[in-house]
C-alpha cells in the first residue's frame, strides 16, 4: 500500500506499546472468540491477557507518548461536530493521531472491552464446571446471567470492530489516507511536524509491571 511520497515530514506517531497492544488485542480477541466454543480453559488464559493489555492501555492513555494519551485526542462535542462536517471531504486526513470521531470509537471499544472482561471474570459456564476467576463471588444464577451479558457485549464489540475497520477502509479508499501502515511501522507522513512528546522508558516498565501484576492477581481470584 505504499503511496506516492506525500509532501511533508515523516513523524513518529504511534509508539511501540500502542502498536503492540493494538495487534495483541486483535490476536487475543480473535483467539478468545474461537476458544469460547470448546476450549474454555484457553479462553480464560487469553482473557487474562486481554485484562493485562486493557489495564496497560488505560494506564498508557495517561502516561504514554502524546498520541496515546486520552487528553490529546478526546474532544468535546463542538470539536467533534466541526470534524464531522469535514469528514466526507475527499481530502487526505492530516490529524496527528486519533481524530475526534476516532476518539469516540476508541473510547467505545475500550469501554465495551472493559464490560467484556468484567462480565467474563464473573461468568459461570452452563455446566457450572468452569467459571471466571471471580465467579466464586456470585451465585450460579448470577454467574449464568453474567455469562449471557458476556455473550451480548461480545456482539456489541463485534459491531464496533466492523465499524472500526469500515472507517479505516473509508479513509484508505475515499480520503486516500493509509492509517494501517502507521499502526504497523509507527511512522506517518504529515504536512507539518506536530512535535509529539515521547514517553520515557521507565514509564513503560512501570506500566507493564503494574498491569501484569494486576492481571495476575485478578486471574488468581484476588487471592494470594
Amino acid at each position: 500500500m505504499p503511496q506516492a511520497p506525500p509532501e511533508g515530514v515523516k513523524v513518529r506517531l504511534w509508539d511501540g506499546p500502542v502498536r503492540i497492544v493494538h495487534w495483541l488485542l486483535v490476536a487475543l480477541i480473535g483467539f478468545s472468540w474461537w476458544a469460547s466454543e470448546d476450549h474454555l480453559d484457553w479462553h480464560q488464559w487469553s482473557g487474562y491477557g486481554v485484562v493485562g493489555l486493557l489495564l496497560f492501555r488505560i494506564y498508557w492513555g495517561f502516561a504514554g507518548s502524546e498520541a496515546a494519551r486520552f487528553a490529546s485526542f478526546v474532544r468535546g462535542p463542538r470539536a467533534t461536530l466541526a470534524y464531522l462536517k469535514t469528514v466526507s471531504a475527499r481530502t487526505p486526513s492530516a490529524t496527528a493521531g486519533h481524530n475526534p470521531l476516532g476518539a469516540l470509537s476508541i473510547l467505545a471499544l475500550l469501554g465495551l472491552l472493559t464490560v467484556q472482561v468484567i462480565t467474563g471474570l464473573f461468568a459461570v459456564d452452563v455446566d457450572a464446571y468452569q467459571g471466571g476467576p471471580l465467579s466464586h463471588m456470585v451465585s450460579f444464577d448470577q454467574g449464568r446471567r453474567l455469562a449471557e451479558l458476556h455473550d451480548l457485549s461480545f456482539h456489541g464489540l463485534q459491531a464496533l470492530v466492523v465499524l472500526h475497520v469500515a472507517a479505516i477502509v473509508f479513509y484508505l479508499v475515499w480520503k486516500r489516507t493509509n492509517l494501517i501502515g502507521p499502526m504497523i511501522t509507527g511512522f506517518r507522513w504529515l504536512p507539518i511536524d506536530p512535535g509529539l512528546a515521547r514517553a520515557p522508558l521507565w514509564r513503560l516498565a512501570l506500566g507493564v509491571a503494574l498491569a501484569g501484576a494486576a492481571a495476575w492477581f485478578i486471574s488468581k481470584g484476588l487471592r494470594l
Binding site: 457450572a128 465467579s135 454467574g143 449464568r144
Partner: peptide
C-alpha cells in the same frame, strides 16, 4: 439451577 448451584 439447584444442581448447578450445588456443583458450583
Amino acid at each position: 439451577e439447584k444442581l448447578g448451584e450445588a456443583f458450583k
